[in-house]
């Protein structure tokens, strides 16, 4: 019995020492890990809303949930919006940060997360060697967000060979996300009747 107590004590001691050491490491790394998440969103916003001063972008929240992002110019006129689009792809949900200007023209897209089939669906965010941005997403730029669709659905977006499901999922989520953005904007402007009406909602 004494032997068991001794062994138990040694094991507990080792575990407590390990836990204490880890608590120290955790306290050092935690701020960095937290900052990492915020930085990811921030850099995605910069890619989705290029040529817009990142300092002017603000998140519109509903409690803890971020509903969309908006950028205001110095006269509190709307310049652009960004929203997160979720599309159910082949093997995962493709999450994309989408930027539109006040007329609803797409100005930037950045895939936040996806675990599609490597080599096929993952091409939605593939950047060819020597290029700066993903070639699939580039064809969205300058198009109206509400009308965007893949060719098979009567639109202009050329699907990725071998990854039509991922291509369509992302494209649809961009259009659907824009529709719900408009609804949210409308609801918000109805509440705050004095603030500038977003042009995109017309």
């Amino acid at each position: 019995m004494k032997e068991v107590a001794k062994l138990g004590f040694v094991l507990t001691l080792v575990t407590v020492l390990a836990a204490a050491g880890l608590a120290m490491v955790y306290s050092i790394t935690k701020p960095r890990i937290d900052a990492q998440g915020a930085m990811e969103t921030e850099s995605a916003l910069i890619e989705a809303l290029p040529q817009i001063d990142p300092a002017s972008i603000e998140a519109v929240r509903d409690g803890d949930e971020i509903r969309y992002y908006r950028a205001l110019d110095s006269d509190s006129q709307y310049l652009a919006f960004a929203y997160i689009a979720n599309g159910s792809g082949y093997s995962s949900v493709i999450k994309t940060m989408v930027g539109v200007d006040k007329d609803g023209t797409l100005i930037g897209l950045k895939v936040l997360s996806q675990t599609e089939t490597p080599g096929l669906g993952t091409k939605v965010e593939e950047i060819k060697y020597g290029e700066a941005d993903p070639w699939f997403l580039r064809q969205f730029l300058g198009k109206k967000a509400d009308g965007v669709a893949v060719k098979a659905d009567g639109g202009e977006i050329v699907s990725i060979t071998g990854a039509t499901i991922s291509s369509r999922a992302l494209t649809k989520s961009v259009a659907n996300g824009y529709t719900s953005l408009l609804k949210r904007l409308e609801a918000d402007s109805a509440m705050a009747s004095t603030s500038a009406e977003p042009d995109g909602s017309e």
Partner: peptide, 10 residues
């Protein structure tokens, strides 16, 4: 949560 790996394996 940093103790997750140790706790789970034990």
């Amino acid at each position: 949560v940093f103790l997750r790996t140790i706790a789970f394996i034990l």
